[in-house]
């Protein structure tokens, strides 16, 4: 580095520059680093400190040690409810999302008519404001006048089967599937484009060789496509799982966490604690527990990936 410069003769300009990199590096970093420290690093530390306090913003905060954490796990039924709901959303949304996205991507990865139109349509909800999406789904799921109830009444009339529409959003048993449907509609286009990118990277020769060997399309899917896109699947699984753990907007707009807390997720509970109960310490505690879960699940998935993810190169890249 700086030792490149010899004392006797001034080094050429481009060499001298190496010594300057020291300060230049920080100059380039400055805008980002300033924002990062103020709005990310300090808040992360502050959140940790806050989780040890009881604080409503009005009164001076009170240090309570680990009490928030203990209370959360010992005597907070809503927290367990929220945890259960979040797990429910994760284990339903992630597999459905992957299966649906892969199915659409496989279908669109062929020379079919209307490809561009299909791509346009399936991706449309991804750019849609979730609030508008949740509003229209709330209307679709309206118990008395929603289009879904109307379809069920129609089936009832036409076939005589005595089916009746459930109270969708006011029935705890149905509100969660409704939220799942909304997120599926919203995000399947995202999974689709990522899968398409993965599919297009598979060398055609593999399929040609399999065809020569007489492999059926089912076998080609099973033994070539799925192993070859398993890194994409792994990536999507992690991303979707983190997203499912952070579910909030859908539940806030469509069901306000209800009915009977059936769609209260962990993030929803963070929101309620902070901005309704004004328990900022507790809200931070819940947020940290959320992080712990995300971390643990991601770690587990990472540990388990060698069992099913197929990488072309040795170093796993």
């Amino acid at each position: 580095m700086a030792s490149d410069a010899s004392p006797s003769r001034p080094p050429p300009r481009w060499r001298r520059w190496r010594a300057d990199q020291q300060s230049e590096g920080y100059l380039f970093l400055l805008p980002s680093l300033a924002g990062f420290i103020l709005f990310v690093l300090i808040p992360v530390v502050a959140a940790l400190v806050l989780s040890l306090y009881e604080w409503s913003l009005l009164s001076p905060g009170e240090y309570v040690g680990l009490t928030n954490y203990l209370n959360l796990f010992r005597r907070d039924p809503t927290f367990f409810k929220a945890l259960g709901n979040t797990l429910y959303f994760t284990v339903t949304i992630v597999p459905l999302q992957l299966a649906a996205g892969l199915a659409v991507a496989l279908a669109l990865n062929q020379a079919i008519k209307g490809l561009a139109v299909y791509r346009l349509i399936y991706f449309m909800p991804v750019v849609t404001t979730i609030v508008a999406g949740a509003l229209v789904f709330q209307w679709i799921f309206n118990k008395d006048f929603g289009i879904l109830s109307a379809v069920i009444w129609r089936i009832n009339e036409l076939t005589g089967i005595p089916v009746q529409p459930p109270d969708w959003l006011t029935d705890p048993a149905w509100a969660r599937p409704a939220v799942v449907m909304l997120t599926l509609w919203k995000n399947v286009g995202f999974t689709m484009v990522i899968y398409l990118a993965g599919l297009q990277a598979i060398p055609v020769e593999l399929y040609d060789a399999a065809e020569v060997d007489g492999a059926t399309s089912w076998r080609r899917l099973l033994y070539i496509t799925l192993p070859m896109i398993s890194p994409t699947t792994f990536f999507l699984m992690v991303i979707q799982m983190i997203g499912a753990f952070q579910l909030f907007d859908e539940a806030f707009v469509m069901t306000r966490g209800g009915p009977a807390q059936a769609t209260t997720t962990i993030v929803y509970y963070v929101y309620v604690n902070a901005f309704e109960y004004r328990r900022f310490g507790m809200a931070s505690t819940v947020a940290w527990v959320l992080f712990a879960f995300i971390f643990a699940f991601t770690f587990l998935q990472n540990r388990m990936q060698h069992r099913w993810v197929h990488y072309e190169t040795e170093d796993g890249r």
Partner: peptide
Amino acid sequence: MIPFQVTMIPNFIL
């Protein structure tokens, strides 16, 4: 990996 919700509350106070 730290979700936005963790930093949201201190940011709100800030």
